[in-house]
Amino acid sequence: MAAREAEAEPAPGARGRITITEIARRAGVSVPTVSRVVNGRSDVSPQTRARVEDLLRQHGHRKRVAASGTRAALIDLVFNDLDSPWAVEIIRGVEEVAHTAGVGTVVSALHGRSGDAREWMRNLRARASGGVVLVTSALEPVLHEELRALGVPLVVVDPAGSPAIDAPTVGAANWSGGLAATGHLLSLGHRRIGLIAGPPRLLCSRARFDGYRAALENAGLAVDETLVVPGDFRPESGFAGCNALLDLPEPPTAVFAASDQMALGAIEALRRRGLRVPEDMSVVGFDDLPEVRWSAPPLTTVRQPLAEMGKLAARTVLRLTRGEQPDSPRVELGTELVVRASTAPPARHG
C-alpha cells in the first residue's frame, strides 16, 4: 500500500502541464476527442490525433496504457486522511475485492490540500489506474473533469457533498443511525442529550444530526442548540466537545458522539473529571470500530458496515471498467444499534 508515488518523468522538452480541457481548447477539438486520443481509441482522424498528441507531449501528458491487456490493473483508493481506524476498515474491504479480482490497490491521502490532489492526479495519469474510489473527500471540479476526460471510472464513498460529476456513490443509513442512537438514550429516560457533531461539510454528518433532531422531535423535545457542539470525528474534538458540555450550567445526562473516536475522547474527558460512564453520563458512538468493544466500558454505538462499503465501491468500479452500469447510482447500506455497557438510565439525585 503506497500513500504517494514519484511523479512520472515529463517528456523531453515538456512545458508546464495543463489540463485536458486546455489541451482540447488549443487543439480546437472537444474534451471527449482528447480523451479518445489519451485512451488509444482508433475513432479519431490521423490529422487530429497528431495535433492532440503533439500538445500532449509538449505539456508532459502520457497516453494511458492498459497493463497486461486488463482494463483495471489498479484501483486508486483516495482519502482525505489516513489517521483513523475507520479508513483501515474501508481499505480492508476494497483490498479484499481487488485481491480476488487480481487487481492492485494504490492508497493515497490528500489532506485537503490542492497541491496534494494535483500531484495525485499526475501520478494517476502515469500509472494508468483503472478506476478511483474517493472516500469522504472532494476534488476540485477541474480534476473531476480530467478523470472524465481520461475515461477513469469514479465511485464516491460517503460523499462530502453533491459530487461535481455524475458518479455512483456508496454510503450508510446515517439518518436512521442517528435516530436509533438518540432514540436509545431517550428510551432509557434521558431528556438532556448532548451531540458532538461531525464536520458540517460532510453529508454523513448532516444526516446523523438530522436523525438526532428527528428522535428528539418524535419525543416532543426541541433541539437545545447549547447541547450541540462541533467535532471533526477525531478523539481530540470529542474530548474538547465533552468538556464544553460539562461546563454548561446544566450539563446533559447523555452524549451522542457522531463517531466512535469522538466518543472515546468524550469518555476520556469524563474520566479526567472523576466522572463514571454510564453512572454519571451515558455515551453513544457511531461506526462500531473494532477497538470500541474493548474500551472501558465497552461502547454502545451504531454499526455502519465500513468494510462492506469498501467492497461494494470496489465491485462498482470494476463493473464500470467493464463497461457495465451499477444497479443504482446511490446505495445506502443499513446501520444497526449495538448496545453495550456505556449507556444506562440517568442517575437519580436527591
Score class of each variant (00 low, 15 high):
Leu55Tyr: 05
Cys242Met: 13
Ala160Asp: 11
Pro235Gly: 12
Leu195Phe: 12
Ala347Trp: 00
Asn39Asp: 09
Arg330His: 12
Ala214Val: 09
Phe209Asp: 15
Glu53Gly: 10
Gly69Trp: 09
Ile193Met: 02
Gly151Leu: 04
Pro32Trp: 07
Gly177His: 01
Asp43Arg: 13
Ala128Pro: 04
Gly131His: 07
Leu264Ser: 08
Ile165Lys: 00
Pro159Val: 07
Ala8Phe: 00
Leu227Val: 10
Arg17Val: 13
Gly60Thr: 06
Pro235Thr: 13
Ala240Leu: 10
Asp288Asn: 11
Val132Phe: 01
Ser205Tyr: 10
Lys311Cys: 04
Ser237His: 11
Ala66Met: 11
Arg340Met: 05
Ile267His: 01
Gly69Glu: 12
Leu203Tyr: 15
Pro200Thr: 15
Arg4Glu: 15
Gln304Met: 07
Arg191Phe: 04
Arg51Asp: 14
Pro85Gln: 06
Asn39Ala: 13
Leu150Ile: 02
Val31Gly: 02
Pro298Cys: 04
Arg17Cys: 08
Val34Pro: 04
Trp120Phe: 15
Val38Cys: 01
Leu318Gly: 01
Ile196Cys: 09
Ala3Lys: 13
Ser328Pro: 00
Glu140Phe: 05
Gln47Lys: 14
Cys204Gln: 15
Ala240Arg: 13
Gly69Gln: 12
Leu337Gly: 03
Leu77Val: 12
Leu245Pro: 02
Thr136Pro: 00
Arg17Asp: 08
Arg276Cys: 12
Thr33Pro: 02
Met121His: 14
Ala240Pro: 05
Glu217Tyr: 08
Val37Cys: 08
Ala314Ile: 10
Thr335Glu: 06
Leu227Asp: 06
Pro10Ser: 06
Ser45Tyr: 10
Ser108His: 11
Ala222Ser: 15
Asp327Arg: 09
His99Thr: 07
Arg234Asp: 15
Met1Gln: 12
Val302Glu: 02
Leu275Pro: 04
Asp287Cys: 03
Glu95Val: 12
Gly151Cys: 08
Asp280Asn: 01
Val103Asp: 00
Thr33Cys: 05
Leu202Val: 14
Arg62Tyr: 06
Arg206Tyr: 09
Ala98Gln: 03
Gln261Phe: 01
Thr301Glu: 03
Asn218Cys: 14
Asp83Trp: 06
Val29His: 03
Glu146Asp: 13
Ala14Val: 04
Met121Asn: 11
Met121Leu: 15
Thr182Phe: 00
Leu185Ser: 01
Ala341Arg: 12
Val37Arg: 04
Ile196Phe: 05
Gly220Pro: 11
Leu270Gln: 05
Asp76Tyr: 07
Thr70Glu: 07
Ala117Glu: 13
Gly220Ser: 08
Pro10His: 00
Asn80Trp: 01
Pro12Glu: 07
Arg118His: 14
Arg208Phe: 09
Leu221Lys: 06
Leu337Val: 06
Asp76Ala: 15
Glu250Val: 12
Arg4Ala: 13
Ala138Glu: 15
Leu312Lys: 08
Val97Leu: 00
Asp158Met: 03
Val31Glu: 10
Ala197Thr: 15
Gly93Ile: 05
Val302Thr: 02
Met1Leu: 14
Pro298Asn: 05
Val65Asn: 09
Trp86Ser: 07
Gly161Glu: 11
Leu289Asp: 07
Gly265Ser: 05
Gly177Lys: 01
Ala257Asp: 02
Val34Gln: 09
Ala307Met: 05
Ser84Val: 07
